[in-house]
């Protein structure tokens, strides 16, 4: 049932800053993410009253308090469930889920995969810092093997999740990764996620400077980052390196890194295609960063179009009304066998 709500169409940038004091630790990677989000939101073409931020529990999940839109700080791991109800109740809303590696991959793992498989048109931003921050430093489902934390004094024996690989398998239709230190790239990815119709998943490598400082140092420091990070660009070959002289290709079932004396741009290397129907390609990409000696891809792994869950739900509702006519209570009550007592 439609509501007669007047719609404003423009939102100045400062509109998205809420009046609440931001309470993350100084130096936390979350600040950069918040700043980029505030910058991007006015540019996505949705007035702020139609923007809803939903979070679970954890440092990242404080995020909705800092954005002046509608927001819901729910319970641990369950933001996707609440988001599903919100989006089905009102498909016009731009719904953002803010979550962390513990929130979405441990306690809320089930909801995340089902959100992806349903292809609800929401944007999931996963702040991955490979640690539990709010509870002060326990290992998380993305902490590497051997990681020493307060709860793994002898090193973690849990194999980490690869979030990109997980959501690809679960059916997310837009899958991307970015890094808190590369704000320009992050802003671009957020815009792409907002524009995508369907379940958008963005993993942000985020530094927890208190409990897991430098987890992504190799990917962010100028001395190492060019050889460690591969920026995915649609229609471009898989190349990296400061001189763009490194490239990736298949060699049988293995991935081979090539180093050349000149730019690898025009060499015969696999070309990145975000919309490849072959999910195995994106899966291959997602696992490259796990291989020692190979770079970590960032950017858009996959972007494909599928009908969204709320579209299908609305269609079924409209179809039922078309077929049976709008529900009539009296008719409902007397459906089936009735009898009259005089």
């Amino acid at each position: 049932m439609a509501d007669n709500i007047p719609v404003t169409t423009k939102s100045p940038k400062e509109d998205f800053a809420s009046d609440q004091d931001v309470r993350w630790c100084p130096g936390c990677g979350d600040y950069a993410i918040l700043a980029q989000m505030k910058k991007v939101l006015p540019e996505i073409g949705v007035p702020r009253e139609k923007v809803v931020f939903i979070s679970g529990i954890g440092c990242a999940s404080r995020f909705p308090y800092y954005i002046n839109s509608y927001g819901f700080h729910t319970i641990h791991g369950r933001a996707p469930a609440v988001a599903t109800g919100i989006k089905l109740a009102n498909p016009e809303l731009s719904v953002w889920i803010i979550t962390g590696d513990g929130d979405s991959l441990s306690i809320g793992g089930n909801h995340l995969i089902h959100l992806c498989r349903r292809n609800l048109d929401v944007n999931v931003i996963l702040f991955n810092n490979q640690i539990y921050g709010l509870t002060k430093g326990q290992y998380s489902p993305t902490s590497p093997l051997g990681k020493v934390t307060k709860t793994t004094p002898y090193g973690s024996i849990d194999r980490p999740f690869n979030p990109i690989s997980l959501v690809l398998s679960a059916g997310a239709t837009f899958v991307a990764r970015t890094i808190d230190r590369d704000t320009k790239h992050m802003a671009e990815i957020f815009k792409r996620a907002a524009a995508h119709k369907g379940c958008s998943f963005v993993e942000v490598y985020q530094n927890c400077n208190i409990f897991n400082d430098g987890a992504y140092r190799l990917l962010t420091e100028p001395e190492t980052k060019f050889d460690q990070v591969l920026y995915l660009e649609d229609g471009k070959p898989l190349i990296y390196g400061k001189e763009k002289n490194r490239g990736l290709r298949f060699n049988g079932f293995e991935t081979e890194a090539l180093e050349m004396n000149e730019s690898a741009e025009n060499k015969d290397l696999p070309v990145h295609r975000e919309n490849s129907e072959n999910e195995a390609y994106a899966q291959w990409l997602s696992r490259i960063g796990d291989v020692p000696g190979l770079p970590v891809p960032v950017g858009v792994f996959r972007a494909v179009q599928r009908p969204t869950y709320e579209q299908l739900s609305e269609q079924q509702l409209a179809g039922a009304i078309q077929k049976k006519g709008p529900g009539d209570l009296k008719q409902l009550f007397i459906s089936g066998d009735t009898w009259k007592v005089e």
Binding site: V52, I54, V82, G85, I86, K87, A89
Partner: peptide, 10 residues
């Protein structure tokens, strides 16, 4: 959770 979300949205 979804029911609560739906209530939030009307």
């Amino acid at each position: 959770g979804a029911a609560i979300g739906a209530s939030f949205a009307g």
